[in-house]
């Protein structure tokens, strides 16, 4: 019993020391505006009006592309770990649940789409939109008016990879067009960014739902 306690005390001491050192160093950080200036200067060539979207989809689009790749890979990891058989429908009597779903899901889809759309000019974007779509999907999965099919079918695999596929196609197009890998022709930047964001939002939404479902293992009860 005394050994684990000693290691715990040591860990606490080390963590405390790290915390103190971090705080002292963080409080010395100089004030500067980081990359705000270069971003502002390049905004007119970015194709969109909102700085964060410009950074996410254009200046640092490669980060976002790889992040969509992380999501897709995580879905594949969940598939490789968990069960893939169909999930039976949940039998819930009464009109309340279905009525709520029937009203909430379209609202969520509309909100998600709107968030993606306005992302080009104000706060919003593929991730926020995708998260709302994902929430709607999780709701549907939890309520399950119909049984869910066996995963991963081709259609599903395609849609969850759609964001990466569209982004990669656009990026390779940029490379061939002489704007660098992950680059856009300035005239087409807006259209391409919106297309990428729409595809990404759909993939993110579906990916989150699949991750939510992904952990089922042998012996789990579907209805608890």
């Amino acid at each position: 019993m005394s050994r684990p306690r000693l290691s715990h005390v040591l860990t606490s001491l080390l963590a405390g020391a790290l915390g103190v050192a971090l705080v002292l160093i963080l409080l010395e950080l100089p004030a500067h505006s980081g990359l705000a200036e270069p971003v502002t200067e390049a905004m007119d060539r970015s194709g969109v009006g909102h700085e964060v979207t410009a950074v996410l989809l254009n200046f640092r689009g490669y980060d976002t592309f790889l992040e969509l790749a992380v999501l897709l890979l995580a879905v594949w990891v969940a598939w490789s770990l968990g069960r893939q058989d169909p999930v039976p429908a949940r039998s819930v009597r009464g009109p309340v649940l279905r009525g709520t779903l029937r009203h909430l899901v379209p609202v969520a889809v509309l909100t998600g789409g709107y968030l993606v759309w306005v992302g080009a000019s104000t706060t919003g974007g593929a991730f926020q939109g995708g998260a709302v779509l994902g929430a709607a999907g999780v709701m549907l999965v939890l309520a399950r008016p119909r049984s869910l099919p066996r995963v991963p079918r081709l259609g599903l695999r395609f849609v969850v990879a759609l964001g990466v596929l569209v982004f990669l196609a656009s990026g390779v197009g940029g490379l061939l067009g002489g704007h660098g890998f992950m680059g856009y022709h300035p005239d087409w930047a807006y259209a391409l960014i919106v297309a990428v964001e729409l595809a990404a939002a759909v993939s993110i939404g579906l990916g989150l739902v699949l991750l939510f479902l992904g952990g089922r293992v042998q012996g789990d009860d579907d209805d608890h």
Binding site: S33, G34, A36, V55, L56, D63, T64
Partner: peptide, 19 residues
């Protein structure tokens, strides 16, 4: 920052959250 809002960390945090 002192005068401008830097959008890059916002983008990094969004990426970081998804990861």
């Amino acid at each position: 920052g002192p005068d401008l809002i830097d959008p890059v960390p916002h983008a990094l945090v969004i990426t970081g959250i998804v990861v």
